[in-house]
Nucleic acid binder design. Structure first.
Length: 688
DNA sequence: GCGGATCAC
DNA sequence: TATGGTGATCCGC
């Protein structure tokens, strides 16, 4: 097993240079960090952190990661030549299948504002120009300008460490109103190039400029140049752009000539493969600090191309979806279609405070949080209490109820129970999260009197917020992204939301919390999240390769994320039927199914039985519609009609009215989670 | 369903 | 003096 044995190297030098074993994210290559003395930064960070509770916790985490790596190395070493060759065959086949999904017909542009918060602050106060400056405070920095980055100062770094690195550093408090205002200006420009642009944060967006290029007969690079000029003209801010055939690559490209630059990757397979071949894996969205270490330390993978060369190992040691993602990365594949609209699945509030073990104080914090949660006006069944102890250990304690709760008192009472079980304890953070919203599970009849997530504003794929399904493409100024920090890390989220409510720019705002825009998240959707490779190894070496079902291993698209790229209709249903679809290649075909719902509102608005579109806010209409199908079915059953026939007929229109992407591959084999439809309905009927 | 982890911004 | 907040997802139980 080839491996980059960095461990012995660093272990031997630990004594002399202990800071080298303290892995922070602050020394990763980032725009503006060229020429930074990383060794010095590392040393300062280490010296400032050493001995703190935070540091000790980091060391504990580090020890776990080392263990993980050791376990994986051991498993990897245990693979026999036979197993490996089997898995190599699987990987090669998979690579071919993935390759077949390559789509070079689209031109995607990723725009990324340069040091956005810092740039806005400088725009508003020209005395900051040319001086090292950071937005944030002594405990946390949201972003730093390029002058500060030369000292190694960067986002997510504590301010007191930043000041040590750069004593001249100017600190400016965050001001989200300002950033939102300028973000809206940029979005107005984006909209002229792609009305359906995807805003992934205040300072980042994806634009499909395929049509613009075609209609005007210009290149992607020319569009990028023009757009960047327009953004500068509109705001006085610079941005960087990447142009490529898919979102994943475009994002990588926008980082290459940052700041105030752009990079075009031609829609050409050879160009993509060449580009990918030397690209460090850490540049890929979804591959973070831990995943990078595992891939390099266990498999010796440091560039994307090596993903392909080590395909056999990857397929044998990772879940199917994770391995698919890795292989896609190796091929330079990524999302080429706008992501499906997604509804928020949870809402949370958390707050850090001076550590205390005073129970009275802790309950007081909980009370405040409970009030905040009530203000969100959501109804959920699952309540999760998050705790961070004074030693930085994070715990979560969850409770799922029969009923939906939303009131301050309910939240507080249940949260108190969860907290009580942890006492005595010394905490520095308490958080609450509510999930399993009323309309989370499709098909459960809605109570029209209830506020639900879906009665809030929802967003279309452009990131523009719309009510229900109508008036797509509302004004960009109505955008609101709660977790919208870009390069910049918020420490003032609560304030941001509160101030946003009074923002004169948000003309649709209402004081009624029900009318408020609610975040629909897009962040990271195009890259997806493929961490969690820890402990995901299943003993599968004994599985038979014959079990691999060719149909089931068809891939839809892109980054290999089943749920992200699923087509509507059957695919959507199948992913509901079979949430646990993470077996490895050789174990496909053993997944179980479970589903009890009646009507599935696909994409949250489309009836699974007849395809009629009913926005989720049409609560009563939906109930009526469900009743209609029920009555219809009962009637036909009584008349002796075979349910299979019935269902087939009812479902058939779906296929025509489908996504219009019939050529796209999708999960299609029963082993992938499709219940025979009559079994499916039999199950439904068992449900009271 | 729960809890720990990872990731993005 | 001092290391964030929000949301998602995966994975093993």
């Amino acid at each position: 097993m080839p491996m980059a044995d960095k461990k012995s190297e660093s272990a031997s030098s630990d004594g002399a240079r202990p800071w080298q074993s303290y892995h922070t994210v602050f020394t990763n290559a980032k725009a503006g960090m060229e020429g930074v003395d990383k060794e010095k930064v590392q040393r300062v960070v280490y010296e400032m952190s050493k001995g703190s509770k935070y540091f000790e916790n980091e060391e504990r985490k580090e020890a776990f990661i080392r263990q993980k790596i050791e376990r994986m190395r051991a498993r990897s070493a245990k693979l026999t030549a036979g197993h490996l060759s089997q898995y190599q065959t699987v990987a090669d086949k998979r690579i071919l299948e993935l390759e077949a999904t390559r789509d070079l017909s689209k031109v995607w542009l990723h725009v990324d504002m340069d040091a956005f918060y810092a740039a806005v602050e400088t725009l508003c106060d020209s005395s900051l120009k040319g001086r090292p400056m950071a937005v944030g405070g002594m405990s946390m920095i949201s972003t730093a300008n390029y002058e500060a980055r030369r000292f190694g100062v960067r986002a997510a770094m504590p301010g007191f460490i930043a000041r040590k690195l750069c004593p001249e550093l100017i600190f400016v408090p965050v001001d989200f109103e300002k950033y939102t205002y300028y973000s809206d200006l940029t979005r107005k420009v984006f909209q002229t190039y792609d009305p359906n642009f995807i805003a992934s944060s205040l300072d980042e967006a994806y634009l499909d400029i395929t049509e613009v290029c075609k209609e005007r007969g210009v290149s992607g690079g020319e569009v990028a140049e023009e757009l960047r000029n327009a953004v500068f003209g509109e705001t006085g801010l610079t941005c960087s752009a990447g142009v490529a055939a898919n979102c994943l690559l475009a994002k990588v490209c926008s980082d290459i000539n940052k700041p105030n630059g752009q990079f075009v990757l031609p829609n050409d397979r050879l160009a993509v493969m060449t580009f990918i071949s030397s690209l460090p894996i850490r540049k890929i969205g979804g591959i973070g600090k831990v995943t990078e270490r595992i891939l390099t330390d266990v498999f010796g993978i440091s560039t994307c191309e090596e993903m392909l060369r080590k395909g056999g190992y990857l397929c044998s040691l990772f879940s199917r979806s994770t391995a698919d993602f890795f292989l896609s990365v190796g091929l330079g594949l990524g999302e080429t279609d706008p992501p499906q609209m997604r509804l928020r699945k949870s809402i949370s509030n958390e707050r850090t405070f001076p550590a205390t073990d005073s129970e009275a104080l802790l309950y007081q914090k909980l009370e405040l949080l409970s009030s905040d949660m009530q203000k969100e006006g959501l109804h959920g069944r699952t309540l999760t209490l998050k705790l961070k102890t004074s030693s930085f250990e994070v715990r979560t304690r969850a409770l799922t109820l029969q009923k939906y709760i939303s009131s301050r008192d309910d939240i507080y009472n249940y949260a108190s129970k969860l907290l009580k079980a942890e006492l005595p304890i010394s905490l520095r953070l308490i958080g609450l999260r509510v999930s399993q919203f009323k309309d989370d599970k499709m098909g459960s009849p809605s109570d029209p009197t209830q506020k639900t997530l879906l009665s809030f504003m929802v967003a279309d794929a452009s990131g523009n917020f719309v009510r229900g399904q109508s008036s797509l493409g509302s004004e960009t100024s109505n955008n609101l992204f709660m977790n919208d920090f870009g390069d910049d890390i918020s420490v003032e989220t609560r304030e941001m939301i509160d101030s946003e409510r009074d923002d004169p720019l948000n003309r649709n705002d209402s004081s009624d919390p029900e009318q408020r825009c609610t975040l629909i998240e897009f962040a990271g959707k195009t890259e997806g999240m493929h961490g969690h490779i820890n402990g995901s190894i299943v003993e599968k070496v004994d599985a038979l390769i014959e079990k691999s079902d060719p149909k089931s291993s068809q891939l839809k698209k892109s980054n290999g994320r089943e749920s992200d790229t699923s087509l509507p209709h059957e695919t959507e249903i199948s992913s509901c039927l079979n949430q646990k679809d993470n077996n490895d290649y050789l174990l496909q075909g053993e997944t179980s199914s479970r589903q009890e719902e009646q009507i599935l509102w696909m994409n949250d608005y489309e009836c699974s039985l007849c395809g009629i579109e009913l926005p989720s806010s049409f609560v009563e209409e939906r109930q009526e519609h469900a009743d209609f199908h029920l009555a219809e079915r009962l009637q036909k059953e009584e008349s002796g009609m075979d349910s299979r026939t019935l269902i087939a007929r009812e479902r058939s229109p779906l296929k025509q009215t489908g996504s219009g992407n019939k050529h796209k591959k999708r999960k299609s084999s029963p082993s992938d989670g499709h219940l025979p439809i009559d079994v499916f309905f039999r199950k439904i009927n068992q449900k009271p």
